[in-house]
Amino acid sequence: MVSVLTPLFILVFIAILTMAQLKAPKMESESLSLANEVVEAVMSRVSMLHCTVLFFTDATTSSTTFFNVINHLRASRGVGVFEAASNGHDKNKTLFRLMSEARRLRQISLCVTVAVVSDDSAFLAAFAEWSLKGRLLQWSTRLLAVTRLPLSDLHHLHEFFSINNAMLLIMENNFGKLKCGVYVHMPYRHKPPVIRVASWTPEKHLKISGYIPLFPEKFYKQVFTILLQLSYFSNHKHSASITTYYDLSIVVLNTKYSSLYLEFICTYFI
């Protein structure tokens, strides 16, 4: 049970839950086989290889490819592989079982990196849905989605990618040459909503595009200082009736934005 946390030990946890007998695809046509170097470059750049790495795939990646990737990654805290067919009437139950097992591994791991590999938009959407229902992802859990689908085919996943600590790795085939783009979906009404933060080519390898780093912080905690001032005075003009005024001032000091001043005047007749 603790073997996932053992340094320098590769734990391969293969959960093959398919409803049909599938033929193993050719390695050169597999997304993960093509993106092997890119995935390793991204993970090593942000020290993700010091965490447990969990792979999710839709049964289109051969076991040979996974063993090659695992051997190339050399993740020090173990690798888990979860495989499920993207079709079949029992897909929801299958994904629920996968998320339950993966969540157990996350709970006993110091840190976790999740990589989902698929060229099927329906499978990616199902993964997004069941990862939320299964409470697989936390902000400390980094998610890397690897696909050959164009960005225009993934607009329905914008909300999922924007609220999680996630990046999207898209492989492009330009005149027979592999080129990869790394994208980040920003929350709220950020302009632009999707930012290309890095690119990869066999010649230039991984190159950061601009000022936004890999897996950037999307949400910031605002520190507020609240000062309460309470003052009052009494009117004793009439001995039978005493009027007391309470003046409550609230000053909110924000470290990032301008100060906000609120004043409430409450009058009580006694």
Results as ranks from 00 to 15, higher is better:
residue 203 E to S: 09
residue 20 A to S: 12
residue 204 K to P: 00
residue 244 T to S: 11
residue 132 L to S: 06
residue 55 F to Y: 14
residue 43 M to A: 08
residue 24 A to E: 14
residue 93 K to W: 13
residue 172 E to L: 12
residue 173 N to C: 14
residue 134 G to K: 04
residue 150 P to R: 09
residue 234 S to H: 06
residue 115 A to T: 10
residue 159 E to A: 15
residue 187 P to E: 05
residue 95 L to D: 05
residue 60 T to E: 05
residue 70 I to G: 06
residue 211 Y to P: 01
residue 237 K to S: 03
residue 221 K to F: 15
residue 55 F to A: 02
residue 75 A to Y: 04
residue 37 E to G: 01
residue 17 L to W: 01
residue 55 F to R: 03
residue 119 D to A: 08
residue 63 S to Y: 02
residue 185 H to V: 10
residue 125 A to R: 11
residue 31 S to D: 01
residue 147 T to S: 15
residue 240 A to V: 08
residue 206 L to F: 12
residue 98 L to Q: 14
residue 119 D to S: 11
residue 233 F to P: 02
residue 191 K to N: 11
residue 221 K to C: 10
residue 3 S to M: 04
residue 157 L to M: 13
residue 247 D to C: 08
residue 132 L to M: 11
residue 264 F to M: 06
residue 179 K to R: 09
residue 4 V to Y: 14
residue 62 S to N: 11
residue 96 F to E: 12
residue 46 V to H: 05
residue 237 K to V: 04
residue 203 E to K: 10
residue 87 N to I: 12
residue 123 F to D: 04
residue 173 N to R: 15
residue 63 S to M: 08
residue 173 N to L: 15
residue 75 A to W: 03
residue 10 I to R: 06
residue 123 F to T: 03
residue 141 T to N: 13
residue 211 Y to G: 01
residue 154 L to C: 11
residue 81 V to S: 05
residue 104 R to K: 15
residue 194 V to I: 15
residue 232 Y to D: 06
residue 92 N to A: 14
residue 261 Y to G: 02
residue 263 E to Y: 12
residue 118 S to R: 05
residue 263 E to V: 10
residue 164 N to Y: 05
residue 180 C to G: 00
residue 181 G to H: 12
residue 103 R to P: 04
residue 27 M to W: 00
residue 258 S to I: 06
residue 54 L to T: 03
residue 246 Y to G: 08
